[in-house]
Each structure stands twice: as structure tokens, then as C-alpha cells.
Design a protein around this nucleic acid. Structure first.
Length: 452
RNA sequence: UGCGCUGUAGCUCAACGGUAGAGCAACCGGCUGUUAACCGGUAGGUUAUAGGUUCGAAUCCUAUCAGCGCAGCCA
């Protein structure tokens, strides 16, 4: 700047007609609308590749990933070197012009003309190469930033939305059940205990009993919330904490109950296929089985299921509940979800109504997903007779006092009723085609794992 | 809780009784169309922990700890 002639040249550049137009705030998901426009993206650096005088920045903003191309001679050495030194997951605000490009997987790229470093990221633990699940679960808070997890969690959100919409649009009222409860709902599984001032309390394992009370008040209701099981199960189908949607309906029988379930499940699956095909592709999900999820679903009586199992070579005594191997073998027979109904009452919960034609059977059903996924719904018609129900409670050795309010429902205008519970995470695993349930939850609670 | 499997560099793995190695990540350098980029170089280790067998142990044995898989339970 000592030389006055330099100043003249500098000001000439500033006032030249190459002044950039204002950058429009944009998100990658609707980048197509901005073709030819200069935009501003706020995001994180997903990956970076360098070719000497040209940089390829993979930038994600939570809605998608775009390749932003930076050329050294266009942006100058300072900015170029700054960008070159960025770490994976550095937060950046970039500006540039959007243009169509056939080489891009999303059809568009961006030519960068500006980059602001918000915060650098040094030694990011999750590299683009493969990692073990244990390591990834330790870094779940960062793992959430990767493509595959985005696809799964978007599908999860879509499934939740579809579930809520279905019941909201079919005359059900949302009535949430309490999470802190005084006693076991079903009396079988182990519960997480906690302290309720000077009283013992438990985390809810099901909202069903409360849903029944609500159904007697509003006719058709559903609850949707977390449930907790303290079972020490370590399998690919179990979580300690999971979400369950539990509709309950007054004046229905077992057949009505199954009809609602198949209509509901068909709607949820078809909605995901319609709205989240990109994410299913990211997961490389073969959707042929999902396309077939249309009613009616098959209805297999327990007696028939036992016959099918025996034909497959299992020595299966009538009266038992199905183990995992038997259940998986049974799903081989069907190309879409199917019901197994009327299980022997002695292997089922105390509140289920008996089949009047065969009192050794319960009016219940499980809905099993194909492709080996197995049970996603358990449902039943509930016992509506006071005398029958109190007999069951005594047979099971349950504390009568704790169930007095539940018995009241059979005292004051009892009606035939029923409902079911759909396990959200199992449904997500099935629709996404996942091997293990743990990726279906943003922060899964597993045996021996509560962090992060 | 039972049975089985596994703990080696930040990560994914190799070395299977004889000097602990590779790819990726990190760092330095090269490259104007890369897309799990590539090429060259540097650094990185009390082989989960504690005992034992052996001239010699990552490797064989025992215990402990941690993780994974399957089962039971269920959604």
C-alpha cells in the first residue's frame, strides 16, 4: 500500500460489477429450488477430499449432504488453506452458487465462494471407515450424525407420525398413561423400582390398564409412551426402555380388534413406503415384502400354528407358548404379517377373556411380521366380568387391593372391550430391515449399557 | 441367570510358542473432478487385568473384569 497506484487498483476491484449477489438461506433438502442462485448453508463438514488446487467439501446440514467445490484461484490462498485444514465435523457456514451436476448423487453441487469457520473439530473419533458396534454405541451421541442413522431415525419419526395420524383420524382420543405406577400391571415381568417419597414406585411396563379405564370414559383411546422392562434379556429384539402405542376400544370383540390392527399396520407401512423411499434406499432395504403389506392378513388359530410347527419337525407340545426358534420358523410360511390367535389361557396374562366355546383358550392374538422379525403386536379382548376377573387375580396371586380400581371398571357399566400394544422399535427394525433393534432408538438402553 | 465367542495402535484387523504388523484416522508433502479418493513420508504399543507353565508367552493354563451372540422373558 506504500504505492498510491496500488490503492487505485484495489478500489477498482471492489467497485467492479463482479460484486456477489446476496446469499439466500437454504437447506440441502430443498436445494433444487435454488438452482443458479447463490445460497448460504449452515452445517458441518462430513468429509473432505483435496486435489491440490481444488477441494471437495462434503457438507451436511441435518437435512442432507451436498458436495461443495472450492477452487484455489477463485477463493484465494488464505481461504483455501483454511478450508484444507478443517477437521471432520467442523461447523461451517458456506456460501456459493448451486448448480446441477450429473456426477452428484443428489443432482446438485455448490461452487463455494465463501466459508466461515464456526468451530473446528479435531480428531473426530468416527472415521469414514468401518467401526464395531460397541465403539459406535459408546459414541452414540456422534454416531447420530451419520447417513445410515439419519435414515433410520427419519423413518422412526415417520412411523410415529403415521401411528398418531391413524388413531387421531379414526376417532381415538390420546390419553397418556402414567409412567410412575404403584404395582405391576401384568404381574409377570421384572420392573424397575424407584422411590416415590416414602413409598415404593415402579416404572410402567404397560399403559394398558389405564387405557382400559380411559376407553370406558371415551370409547376409543390410545396411549403412546415409553415402557420399561427390567428383564436381563440380551437379544437383538429387546431393549430395557422402548416405546409402545396402545389403543383400547369399548364394545369390540377379538375379530374387531384384529381388523383394526391390520388396517393400522397396512397404513403405517404404506405411509413409510410413500414418504421415506429415499431413506429405505439408503438402508438398502428390499421393499418387495413391504409392498405386500395389504389386508387381509392371515389368521392362524393356535391349533393350526401347532400343526404347522410339527410339520416342520419340531416336537412341540400343545399348550406351550412359542419360543424364538419356533416363531422364526412359523414366519417362513407367510409373505406378509399374520395373526396367531386364541393361545392357551394359561400362558397368557390374567386380564384376557376366555373363549366361551373353549375356555382353555384366551381371546388374544399376536401379530407376527414376516422375514423372521416375529412379534410386533400383542392384543386381546379383555375379561369384562367382575366375578371372572377377581377369580383370575386370586389365581395369579396378585394383590387384590392394588387392582380394586381396575375391578371397578367391571362393576360400573362393564362392556366387552379390547386393544393391543405395538412395539415401536420392533416395527422400526422390521420396516428398516435391521438385524438389531439397538439402532432404532436414538439413545438405546441395553443390558449393561445406559450411556450416553 | 445358563451355554458359547472375543479382548493387540484412536478405529478395523493380522501375527497362533521365537525381534508386535497392515489399512484407515492424526501429522508433513504431492495432485484441478474426487466421491469409504489416490500417491509418498512421519509418529503411534506395559498385547484388558492378576497369577502360572516355559530358555522364551499376544499366542498355552487359571482367575477376575468388560463386551458380543444365543436362550428364557416379552413389544
Amino acid at each position: 500500500m506504500e504505492n498510491p497506484s496500488d490503492a487505485v487498483v484495489t478500489s477498482a476491484v471492489v467497485e467492479a460489477p463482479v460484486v456477489l449477489e446476496e446469499a439466500l438461506p437454504a437447506r440441502i433438502i430443498d436445494i433444487a429450488k435454488f438452482e443458479g442462485k447463490r445460497v448460504q448453508l449452515k452445517g458441518w463438514l462430513y468429509n473432505i477430499r483435496s486435489s491440490g488446487k481444488i477441494l471437495f467439501l462434503q457438507v451436511r446440514d441435518g437435512s442432507g449432504i451436498i458436495q461443495a467445490v472450492m477452487v484455489k484461484k477463485e477463493v484465494g490462498a488464505d481461504l483455501f488453506n483454511l478450508a484444507k485444514g478443517l477437521g471432520q465435523e467442523a461447523s461451517v457456514i458456506i456460501t456459493g452458487v448451486v448448480r446441477a451436476d450429473e456426477r452428484s448423487s443428489i443432482g446438485f453441487e455448490m461452487s463455494v465462494d465463501g466459508l466461515e469457520l464456526v468451530c473446528n473439530s479435531v480428531d473426530y473419533p468416527i472415521s469414514p471407515k468401518e467401526h464395531g458396534t460397541d465403539f459406535l454405541l459408546d459414541h452414540r451421541h456422534l454416531w447420530l450424525r451419520s447417513k445410515r442413522q439419519h435414515a433410520i431415525l427419519r423413518i422412526r419419526a415417520e412411523i410415529i407420525r403415521a401411528c398418531r395420524n391413524y388413531f387421531d383420524e379414526h376417532g381415538f382420543l390420546l390419553i397418556d398413561s402414567p409412567i410412575l405406577t404403584p404395582a405391576a400391571c401384568e404381574g409377570t415381568t421384572t420392573l424397575f423400582g424407584t422411590d416415590y417419597f416414602d413409598q415404593k414406585a415402579y416404572l410402567s411396563q404397560s399403559g394398558q390398564l389405564y387405557a382400559e379405564a380411559s376407553a370406558m370414559a371415551f370409547g376409543k383411546v390410545y396411549c403412546f409412551g415409553p415402557t420399561f422392562r427390567a428383564e436381563k434379556s440380551r437379544t437383538r429384539r429387546h431393549l430395557m426402555e422402548f416405546w409402545m402405542i396402545e389403543p383400547e376400544m369399548a364394545y369390540i370383540d377379538l375379530d374387531d380388534n384384529m381388523a383394526v390392527q391390520e388396517d393400522f399396520v397396512e397404513t403405517v407401512v404404506q405411509t413409510v413406503l410413500k414418504n421415506r423411499m429415499d431413506d429405505l434406499k439408503t438402508l438398502e432395504r428390499d421393499t418387495t415384502f413391504l409392498e405386500k403389506v395389504k389386508k387381509p392378513f392371515y389368521r392362524v388359530h393356535y391349533d393350526e400354528a401347532v400343526e404347522r410347527i410339527r410339520k416342520k419337525g419340531f416336537e412341540f407340545p400343545w399348550g406351550e407358548d412359542f419360543g424364538a426358534d419356533v416363531e422364526a420358523a412359523l414366519t417362513e410360511d407367510f409373505d406378509k404379517p399374520f395373526f396367531v390367535h386364541r393361545f392357551p389361557a394359561k400362558v397368557k396374562a390374567f386380564y384376557m377373556k376366555r373363549d366361551p366355546e373353549r375356555p382353555e383358550l384366551a381371546l388374544c392374538s399376536d401379530l407376527l411380521a414376516p422375514e423372521g422379525y416375529g412379534e410386533i403386536i400383542g392384543g386381546s379382548q379383555r375379561e369384562d366380568s367382575y366375578d371372572e376377573l377377581i377369580g383370575r387375580i386370586r389365581e395369579h396371586g396378585l394383590p387384590e387391593e392394588a387392582f380394586s380400581w381396575y375391578l371397578d371398571l367391571r362393576k360400573y357399566g362393564s362392556v366387552p372391550h379390547g386393544g393391543f400394544g405395538l412395539g415401536l422399535e420392533r416395527t422400526v427394525a422390521w420396516i428398516c430391515g435391521l438385524h438389531h433393534i439397538r439402532e432404532t432408538s436414538p439413545f438405546p438402553r441395553l443390558l449393561n449399557r445406559m450411556n450416553p
